[in-house]
Amino acid sequence: MTKFLSFISRAYVTLVFCIVFMPMAIILVISFSADSYLSFPPSGWSLKWYGTVLGNTSFMQGFRNSAIIAVIVAALSLALGLPAAYALVRLDFPGRALIRSLVIAPLVLPAMMLGLGILMVFTPAGLVATYPGLVLAHLVMTLPFSIRILQTSLSNLGTDVDEAAMTLGARPLQVFMQITLPRLTPGVIASSAIALILSFDEIVLSLFIVGPRLQTLPVALYRYVDERTDPMVAVLAVLMIALSLAIVLVVERSVGFAKAFGR
């Protein structure tokens, strides 16, 4: 009986893995196709589509834009999220509980609604199809994540160590810079990595406010797929997955994800 159960559970896990990884595996295979249309399995092999992608100005422009925006968004998420998380965990002020729950509101609202709202605010403000506009829109997505992760890390630190520093003569700013912040490194890295990935992959909000002069990579890819389907799409997907994976690996290697999320 237990043998049977163990077989069932193993089969189940295998099935889930297949469902999750099959599309990625197929995309990876197709990216090395020599065909000029999407077909599986490909009739021949080549690296030519990788070359085509790297030579495509629209994609390369999109990549550059996305990378710049993602880096700025990650930095701002940290710069804005850290003080917010600190206040929500360590300081006592009226309405703290309410703000704590409101912070995650953007995560539960449909992205379409958010996008529409952002468009309505950004158009009169002249922020559509600008770097600041895209950065702001992405921050709406990433800040709740950053604040939540930093909030968890911060409350897991407890207050004893900071208080010990205080009794040894450290003023609050010294405590924060010399004790709290260094101990918060895993959370800082994790929240930045998440913000970076979220911003780089973001499409729904971006679709509302990109313009012909300023496109992100996911939007460029989306538009391209609308018109044509060739293995170039698979190549781009592979490259984007590889980038996200690289960031995740860096986090895992430097601090470990379990630690980064404060468990």
């Binding site: 208080e163 520093a165 003569g169 450290a170 260094p182 101990r183």
Partner: peptide, 30 residues
Amino acid sequence: RPPWERNLGLVFQSYALFPHMTVAQNVAFG
């Protein structure tokens, strides 16, 4: 007086050492 102006030595139940510093740096902190 705030804690940082009292010149007291408090040893917590949890020890509350600074994990990112060496033993000598911990002791030298004050």
